[in-house]
Design a binder for these strands. Sequence first.
DNA 1: GCGACAG
DNA 2: ATCTTGTCGC
Length: 270
Amino acid sequence: MPTAAQGWPDWGWPEPDDDLVALQVGLGEAAMRALATDECRPSGEPLVLGGCFVVHARGTPGPGRQGDPAWAAAVAWRPGREANGPARRTDRHLRGVSGEDGPRRADDVLAQCVLTGRATAPYVPGLLAGREGPLLAAALYGLDVRPDVVLVDASGRDHPRGAGLAVHLGAATGLPTVGITRRPLLATGAPPELRRGAISALRIADRCVAFWVCTRSGVRPLVAHAGWRTSPETAARLALEASTPAARTPVPLQEARRVAHEARSGSPAG
DNA sequence: GCGACAG
DNA sequence: ATCTTGTCGC
């Protein structure tokens, strides 16, 4: 269970009537200061990487609405030797059942938490935190192993106000974060070679905020975003450490997504 | 011609 | 997110 960030304001989640845009302006400035004074540079072992993911009720149209049923999962994972060797095969890493009939847990996952709730807003570009932030934070608080860094399916500093969901989630929970997405939000840059390990900078006005990262040879790269207390370089490095040659998606995100989907499948509403 | 602003 | 088409692996 994460503890609140120390030495920083209590960046929580806005009420429905609050101004998330204004909050994000302050968050963007805080993220800059946090990186300058408390940069997170994970090194050596043991390195525990977290991942979190939200899925909504099947059939949720377009941007969705406030109150949409949703399932959120968080996992804590430690890279094994699979990371640099043979492909990690999801099925081989699954144990029987965790709990009574809850989602299964992969045998290289140290801890996981899944819960059901509701979306706090419709999806609006730039305001993803308003829709998924509270639920993701709740899932992270349910972990009994504290990750060193959490991977989030969202942008970070690559955002109109420098405060994408990855930044906000980190500030709210006190956990360093890295964002992982299929494409950048505002940043631009030429993609790298399609060879695992290749990276190239993504910039906003000459400022590097993220990297294209090829995590699997021959397939489209993903974007690793600087988040809360992390640099773009650290984001890129962790994207590679968290993924295997066989799967483009980092394992913690893949597992969190699988667990959330499994919870939805076993739910009356899912 | 339209969109090309995460999920 | 959702949708569609196509390809590959188990």
